[in-house]
């Protein structure tokens, strides 16, 4: 069969982990049992359930994971509902990788990094955080501020507790929106927590989460004196081709699927406000 970038390959969902009441993490391998393709942190892939549709998801696993790709996916209609109803061993289609990814080996190299995530926003950051952990000596200090509605809504909580929190040189700051009985950590919204922590303005910031979180965290960082070209985020728009051709994700002169999803805020300032 003649190949085309729009023609996917078949993948097997080899493992499914329940993360939160509405987030599951899907491990995908090729029919040959191998990782479907290589990627860089922050890149995405198109997953589909034929007959239901195709959708773009950020790859949650680190490129340093040699055996598979992982996707943490929130249940929010259509394709995601079907994925959530799957059992291990079932097949999906997959194509990718798409997008620019984070500049982990260039702009991030040697920098102190501050990751800020809210809810499912940890998914795109998970890949880059684990990449940086793997190549720990290439980066300076690593701070992670992560918040969710409740303890149950924290994605990857087990991994955070057992791995990230126990590692030297990585500071994880968890927060939840409201008090709850089995939680003795910080309570409050992410933007306020970031301000309280008053991070060093020399840190490179990577933010992902709901638009309000992004907006208020950005405001706080500006007040603290962070430069806009030191703050990165990812954009989420409707996608169809993921190849920069179908026109769907076009904003100004950029195509989010190809030129993004990772942008610095000084780059976003140049784009029309249509995201």
């Amino acid at each position: 069969m003649r190949r085309d970038p729009l023609i996917p390959m078949i993948g097997v969902v080899s493992h499914i982990r329940v993360d939160t009441p509405d987030v599951k993490t899907f491990r995908v391998i090729g029919l040959d049992g191998k990782k479907p393709f290589e990627h860089i942190p922050g890149q995405c892939a198109m997953l589909s359930v034929p007959g239901v549709g195709e959708a773009l998801f950020s790859i949650t696993s680190s490129p340093t994971e040699e055996a598979y790709l992982e996707f943490s996916i929130k249940k929010c209609g259509c394709v995601t509902d079907w994925l959530h109803a799957m059992t291990p061993g079932q097949q999906v289609t997959i194509r990718g990788p798409y997008g620019n990814g984070f500049p982990v080996d260039t702009e991030f190299a040697g920098k102190d990094l501050l990751f800020v995530a809210g809810g499912i926003g940890l998914a795109p950051l998970h890949s880059v955080i684990n990449y940086c952990r793997h190549y720990r000596d290439r980066y300076g200090r690593i701070d992670i501020v992560y918040g969710a509605r409740s303890k149950e809504d924290l994605v990857d909580y087990e991994e955070i507790l057992n791995e990230w929190l126990s590692e030297d040189g990585i500071n994880v700051h968890l927060t939840i929106d409201r008090e709850q009985p089995d939680w003795d950590g910080h309570v409050g919204f992410v933007p306020n927590y970031v301000k309280e922590l008053s991070p060093d303005t020399g840190m490179t910031v990577v933010m992902c989460g709901p638009p309000v979180m992004i907006k208020f965290t950005l405001g706080g960082l500006m007040e603290l004196g962070f430069p806009r070209d030191g703050i990165y985020t990812t954009l989420e728009l409707r996608m169809k081709c993921a190849l920069g051709k179908c026109g769907r994700c076009n904003i100004g002169s950029k195509y989010v699927c190809k030129d993004g999803p990772v942008f610095r805020f000084d780059q976003l300032d140049e784009l029309p406000d249509e995201y």
């Binding site: 069969m1 085309d4 729009l6 023609i7 996917p8 078949i10 007959g51 097949q91 999906v92 289609t93």
Partner: peptide, 14 residues
């Protein structure tokens, strides 16, 4: 047409 899929219990075929 881009591609077709045969979907069954066994899996997906392009």
């Amino acid at each position: 047409n881009l591609v077709g899929f045969k979907v069954s219990e066994q899996g997906i075929e392009l």
